[in-house]
Nucleic acid binder design. Sequence first.
DNA 1: ACACTTTTTTAGAATCATTATAAACTACTT
DNA 2: AAGTAGTTTATAATGATTCTAAAAAAGTGT
Lengths: 132, 132
Amino acid sequence: MKYTEKLRNSGLRPTKQRLQICEVLFETEKTFHFTINELSLKIKKQIDNKISLATIYNTVHAFEKKGYLKQIPINSNETYFDTNVSDHHHFYDLKKEKLIDLENADVGPIDIKRKIDGKKIKSVEILVKLED
Amino acid sequence: MKYTEKLRNSGLRPTKQRLQICEVLFETEKTFHFTINELSLKIKKQIDNKISLATIYNTVHAFEKKGYLKQIPINSNETYFDTNVSDHHHFYDLKKEKLIDLENADVGPIDIKRKIDGKKIKSVEILVKLED
DNA sequence: ACACTTTTTTAGAATCATTATAAACTACTT
DNA sequence: AAGTAGTTTATAATGATTCTAAAAAAGTGT
Ligand SMILES: [Mn+2]
Ligand SMILES: [Mn+2]
Ligand SMILES: [Zn+2]
Ligand SMILES: [Zn+2]
């Protein structure tokens, strides 16, 4: 299995559940955005055995900590995650409540002129809200 | 009272509670960021009578809808609001869990090149996460 | 294979920010 | 003053997320 090594290298045991979640998350043509609830439904559809919700939460958070997933800063009553972990920005369709990736070429260079003493910039994320 | 008219013009009755919340929110030198919980504590300190938590939630949401407050897109277990309703961006100090305003001069012009058919840009917000 | 340790999974309970309910109260209109 | 529509409030409900602790699985050494 191609994810076994990836998990081992991260200090995560390649369990059946984690490998299955890897398939659902990463064995896709395109990257995608999801909430835990949506991922849970996707898992139910794609695999036979049951994976507990607690394990899905645990795994998503473990993957996020390891950098295999990104949390998207947005106000919703559910937390959004992204399988696209490259630096990129988002449209947020307020009507559909859907995120859309902005490619790097879609956004001009961002110039943050201010500095805060003793602090480093970890990330710079743009959220563009869309209405009709 | 200076807020009575403002409320009336928005179709909101100028109740005692709303006027008091206006004072706590807007009768300040500087704008500020807050969670409902923080606002609730601030209200307790600044006024004598009690305002129920439900009213604080109702009022904050009413004011947001009217454009007197802005919700800041950030992932926290509590929702952040901003009394600064001008277009501006934020630093987020991950350690302190505090927001810092970026003035417009602090950020170069932002160029969103991509368009989505039938959708208009409602807002463009940058969140710069800071680590040590 | 076996014994032993550590990590992981799991069902269910707990947490807690937020929203809903519905009765009492207040502001506004006539 | 009476009527009504809007507001406040205590309290309950909701629901995403986290916690718990016991069972299962994975890794390690022999
Ligand atoms: Mn959802
Ligand atoms: Mn808060
Ligand atoms: Zn994305
Ligand atoms: Zn601000």
